[in-house]
């Protein structure tokens, strides 16, 4: 009896294939990985139309929870020294580097790039993190000022974080575009709720795993996957959101707006609570277009999510 069992075990191990361990793609909210409160998922296809993953389809309640988490984390993140924020963001780049192969495969499959192109896109994304990490303790020097005033006062202006920033991540560039839109608000101490590219969300889920295992405090970045048309309106009208980046309001096909909702409507909803809004980029003819993210970044994107604080301080006599 014992012999038979042993023999059959050996046969099984020798001939059958190992069961694959499939991954559950979840949201990233408040430093945790919840499924969508709604329990829904949606199918994501690769560039050739083959099944890639079942990804959590976030609901407006998930969006609400994400804003609560971002608000709770904001004061602490803004209170960290600029130098410390720089170290933390640089650490993200380090951990991203360790996930390079996985990211190359995911970006390549989702965006339909060759291995070499995907490799370049990932390298560019990691370098982008490093570039923005360097800005944390420099932005106030560049954008701040000692203003001349007619009186015995120091008059100093400096950029301060605006608060909770919602980012509609670019639809086309699933990693480089994502990094180029979420890193800038983080530099000055904003916290972010990002709605990942609807058709290409997998690199965003991987990025959230990177964020969870680097030193970024929970809630500083919250990643939602799902239908942008469902998630964007409640976030645009949310009173506890301070700013919105509409980079992702340009469809994969170049169509403007989010699945039928024009970004103008989102901007109007955002205006109700006086949010800062960064409109989508335009091409040379003035049409909405997703920019070429490989172009050299500029610090203006950081300053789009800041408030200028000016203090008067008497000069000692």
């Amino acid at each position: 009896m014992a012999r038979t069992t042993r023999a059959s075990t050996a046969t099984t191990a020798g001939t059958s294939e190992r069961l694959s361990v499939r991954k559950t793609y979840k949201l990233y909210v408040g430093g945790k990985f919840p499924r969508s409160e709604s329990g829904r998922t949606y199918e994501v296809l690769d560039a050739k139309g083959r099944f890639l993953a079942n990804v959590a389809q976030g609901s407006r309640k998930d969006a609400r929870e994400a804003v609560v988490a971002a608000r709770a984390a904001q004061a602490g993140w803004a209170a960290a020294t600029a130098y410390n924020r720089g170290q933390v963001l640089y650490r993200v780049a380090e951990v991203l580097e360790g996930r390079r192969d996985q990211l190359v495969a995911e970006v390549g499959a989702g965006e339909g790039l060759t291995a070499r192109q995907a490799e370049l896109a990932v390298s560019e994304a990691i370098d982008r993190w490093v570039w923005y990490a360097g800005w944390t303790d420099k932005i106030a020097q560049v954008a701040g000022a000692a203003n001349p005033v007619a009186g015995p006062y120091f008059n100093l202006s400096s950029p301060e974080p605006t608060g909770v920033v919602v980012v509609l991540a670019p639809q086309r560039s699933s990693l480089l575009g994502l990094v180029s839109t979420i890193a800038p608000p983080l530099v000055t101490g904003n916290t972010v709720v990002v709605v990942a590219s609807e058709q290409r969300p997998v690199p965003a889920v991987t990025l959230s795993e990177v964020l969870a295992t680097s030193d970024v405090p929970g809630g500083v970045v919250n990643v939602l996957t799902g239908r942008a048309a469902e998630l964007a309106p409640p976030l645009a009208s949310h009173r506890d959101v301070d700013a919105m980046d509409l980079a992702g309001a340009v469809g994969l096909d170049g169509a403007t707006g989010v699945a039928g909702i024009g970004w103008g409507e989102l901007e109007a909803a955002a205006a109700d609570s006086v949010k800062r809004v960064l409109r989508p980029a335009t091409d040379r003819r003035g049409n909405d277009a997703e920019p070429d993210w490989t172009e050299a970044p500029r610090p203006q994107r950081i300053l789009a999510f800041t408030e200028t604080k000016t203090v008067w301080h008497p000069k000692g006599i």
């Binding site: 608000r71 409640p234 009208s237 949310h238 009173r239 506890d240 959101v241 109700d272 609570s273």
Partner: peptide, 9 residues
């Protein structure tokens, strides 16, 4: 109003 509210208000 249909809009999520915030503690600032």
């Amino acid at each position: 109003t249909g809009a999520y509210w915030g503690p600032d208000y």
